[in-house]
Write a protein that binds this DNA or RNA. Structure first.
Lengths: 197, 197
DNA sequence: CCATTATGAGTGAACGTTCACTCACATCCT
DNA sequence: AGGATGTGAGTGAACGTTCACTCATAATGG
């Protein structure tokens, strides 16, 4: 077995677990399911993670922080409203580009209770923080209305999340690109002052 | 066996189950937990519900449709933007008035996947439908901007849900009343045309 | 008005299944 | 050689569900 094969085993478990967690949730996914889908034995999982919960938490933390970085990059620079629009469009794009990851992040927040506070303790940045920061910048530069920035950030994120959920669950059938623009238009009309930065 | 135990068993189970489901989720709550909290035996549950899943689905369906009716009532009549504001304020109020119910509805959507499509099959009205209808009215009467009404409705609901979640999970510490106004202001500024009905 | 019978909610120990996790052993890499 | 990694049957605990039984109350009959 080559070094690469071993590395692949870890990644195969990760990919399989994310896909299964995304489809059935953490609780409903068994170690056997994961091992089977990854093509490794059950015992092998425990060489790399202490428990199923540990695996789920590690995957969630990794995806969550990766999402934060991606959002930050996607936002780019410029006036806050423009950055927010890019964040919204990018988030909708993620659903098409990596549906398993999007679904995993969407579903696991309720399964994986401990990690999110834990992440914040470790000083790691969450997607909420990223949007909060942009909103905060916008308020400072007077391009976003002056209001509780957490509330505005959650309004933006909630709108994104629920529209994506309704798409994933099949209620909303409009193409994601159109959805992103509709949602971004409505939100930015509500948040922008109309003044530039 | 007391007379009270017999008469109240169903309701005591309902109350206990909602509280436990709200705190730990459906999967993590055991029949023993529920029976214990309700002060009845485990077997008694099966006199009234076929399974734990059935109990959860029945409770969710009941709460979900009750929420729909309450929202419809809270909306009242008048121009769509005013009705939406009342819906938003009422939803935030629910968290203070009945935190267990609010939390149960928030958490169980991901545990109780089958019932929601099932509800829609049965032609029952969901909270999403209520908001969709108001948005649709608003578009017709030109008080709401002309866009995909499902998208706008999900934007409103998502904003409500995520702000409530962040409050329940302790990230958002601003008082709920203030939050409701902030969120309603931002959303309605984005959705309204400014024209009356 | 009482004795008898029927009803069905309530009980909880027992059952069978499921599942996360372990461990003795095999295999691979350096 | 020896540490790291992989294997998968085995283990014990937890869980949902069942079922033979109890008993308060209601219905029936004389």
């Amino acid at each position: 077995m080559s070094k690469d094969a071993r590395i692949d085993a870890r990644n195969k478990v990760r990919d399989a677990a994310i896909a299964l967690f995304a489809q059935k949730g953490v609780k409903a996914t068994t170690i056997k399911d994961i091992a089977r889908a990854a093509g490794v034995s059950e015992g092998a999982l425990y060489r790399h993670w202490a428990s199923k919960e540990d695996l789920a938490a590690a995957l969630f933390a990794a995806e969550y922080t990766a999402l934060s970085h991606s959002l930050r990059e996607a936002a780019g620079s410029g006036p806050a409203p423009e950055r927010l629009r890019r964040v919204i469009v990018w988030a909708f794009g993620l659903v098409e580009a990596a549906p398993d990851r999007a679904r995993f992040l969407l579903l696991s927040q309720h399964d994986a209770l401990p990690p999110v506070p834990a992440l914040m303790k470790d000083g790691l940045e969450t997607p909420v923080d990223v949007v909060c920061a942009i909103v905060g910048d916008g308020i400072a530069e007077r391009s976003i209305v002056d209001a509780d920035r957490e509330a505005l950030a959650h309004t933006v994120i909630g709108a994104i999340v629920l529209n994506i959920q309704s798409h994933v669950y099949g209620r909303q059938t409009a193409p994601l690109g159109t959805l992103a623009d509709t949602v971004a238009d409505a939100l930015l009309r509500g948040l922008s002052t109309g003044k530039g930065a």
